[in-house]
Design a protein around this nucleic acid. Sequence first.
DNA 1: CTGAAAGCGCTAACAG
DNA 2: CTGTTAGCGCTTTCAG
Lengths: 354, 354
Amino acid sequence: MSTGEDDQDQEAQASPARQAGRRGPRPAGSATISRVAEAAGVSRATVSRVMNGSPTVNPELAARVRAAAEALDYEPSVAARSLALGRTGTVSLVVPDLANPLFQGVLRGLSQAAGKAGRRLLVAESNEDPEEETVLALEARRNSDGLVLASPRAPDARLCELAARLAPFVLVYREIPGFGAPSLSVDNAAGIDDVVAHLTGLGHRHLAYLAGPPGSAANCERLAALRAATGIRLTELPCGSMFDEGHAAARAVVECGASAVVGFNDMVASGALTGLHERGVQVPGDVSVTGFDDIPFARYTTPPLTTVSIPKSELGAQAWERLWALMNGESGGYNARFRPRLLVRDSTGPVRSY
Amino acid sequence: MSTGEDDQDQEAQASPARQAGRRGPRPAGSATISRVAEAAGVSRATVSRVMNGSPTVNPELAARVRAAAEALDYEPSVAARSLALGRTGTVSLVVPDLANPLFQGVLRGLSQAAGKAGRRLLVAESNEDPEEETVLALEARRNSDGLVLASPRAPDARLCELAARLAPFVLVYREIPGFGAPSLSVDNAAGIDDVVAHLTGLGHRHLAYLAGPPGSAANCERLAALRAATGIRLTELPCGSMFDEGHAAARAVVECGASAVVGFNDMVASGALTGLHERGVQVPGDVSVTGFDDIPFARYTTPPLTTVSIPKSELGAQAWERLWALMNGESGGYNARFRPRLLVRDSTGPVRSY
DNA sequence: CTGAAAGCGCTAACAG
DNA sequence: CTGTTAGCGCTTTCAG
């Protein structure tokens, strides 16, 4: 991380040193609505109407106003509008970890959808700290008109307690029964069932599960589904959610003698893939591997990873729809549970005959 | 993407249907500073002082105020503060594509740094459209106190033209000579030089370059450095910046007969890796492959990818430092060019003897 | 169709 | 140390 600094002193540039961090109400020398009104010889109300495209303005006046605005480089103050209007034109997203492809997916979906609707997006990351998450959520919410919250670890109770102050908001990747906000979740059990069916269909009878973070809702559901599966022997291996954790787990995998490993997610599965490869075990020849989530990389591992695909950015887009409805006073209050889809690629194959 | 909707009608929830999307200045029934003042039997100024932790307040009064605020569930209006203070407490980031690990890196770095300083982060994505980018940048800037802009494709002239209205802001992944804002960039030429030295050291004399998007500044610099390299034969293969483009380019690679391929970035390199693998060509046995950027996945490809590491999130953190300085009227106006570091992993090896 | 006036909720001198 | 007094810049009835 060596940083050769060129230290090229550059001119102070046109814009005079701004005191933005400190005081000085005015963003610079930027024009106000009053100045425009004055210049155009009309009232502020008229300028306001023109700027907001009210059709009830004399075209001639409108033109004059627009000209004046143009000439003065006028740009309405967002803060002033927010105050007068009572809304910010912004929505926020709070996630545990921006490095996680799962959340990047909803970020993208939400960003696009909100952008298309002319809304800005505020994002905050809690670094996996559930308490921090709720604080940030409150914070974020106060700075915007609505919130999308991904908080897989925060306790149900805490969320319920905050629900009123967070509204309008929607929960993603999680469902809380009888909760005061719509939630968009994934049917993890169904996904696991598909995996198990696929694997048993190939003759596998002993599966090793690379478990995700203990507190994670997704991990609980996936694990539960696995335990509920019949006709297989299950070995649970503590693992995590990152590449290196999956990588490290490779050893335990070969030791436990399972013929197939189902990873908590694609990252641990990929990690396991390379770990296995390093130990000279063939995938899927010797052991089959599956992931979960279908992150972009999953199809480029060697071999391409069989995984369960979840509609990450679709979740973001849907979250926007729900939020939008809520913001308009509509109920929007129904939950959606997405049925993930099994993607069979090359990391799974018939159990080795011996 | 089938979505089984549970349609669980849920109660309308405590908070009455809000008209947030429409009018209604008041965020709900939330208390105002006046109400708190009244309840505490003091002036609004005093409440304001207490809320902002002014030390010059009688502890007794302060306590009363805090109690009242608590009782009323008072939360200061962000919009009103912004208007009065002349700043929003938010900074924004505009990037071409949130799916790109490069920008995800600065997003994370910036998010963390800004968060630590108690600032919120607004993000906007232009979908690779340079013109859209400048519009978004303006938009974003007006909604915040400062801007970090990643705009690898927008023409220099356009950026210069907008500089004044964008300030304070900093440019990342790009450097414009004599520009009105600090820029944080990467020394692509140095990175390529390292790659070439590494490869020639292994005996490679014929390199194939998987070219990035034509308009991209990074691609130009990397390509130029490659062309300037001596002692090698260079075959330029049009490619792109995504996995599948790299994947598709595998064919051309084997056809051109190069003994090593240098990818524009890690994604195309990974794509090439799997493409090569599918065709039965050994890496690094038959051909060596290098990437650029060092995305998280690069160390988990098969074989792990030799690449050039650039400090993505460090760039974000640095961007915050610069921006912060600018926002406080300090110059902050020097550029930094990061020297990337070659990471030799297993995708490169000695040229095959024949 | 346009202007006047009254806020939106908070902060910041400036007096007391 | 606390209250009074002006705004910050825009929107929005309500008259005209």
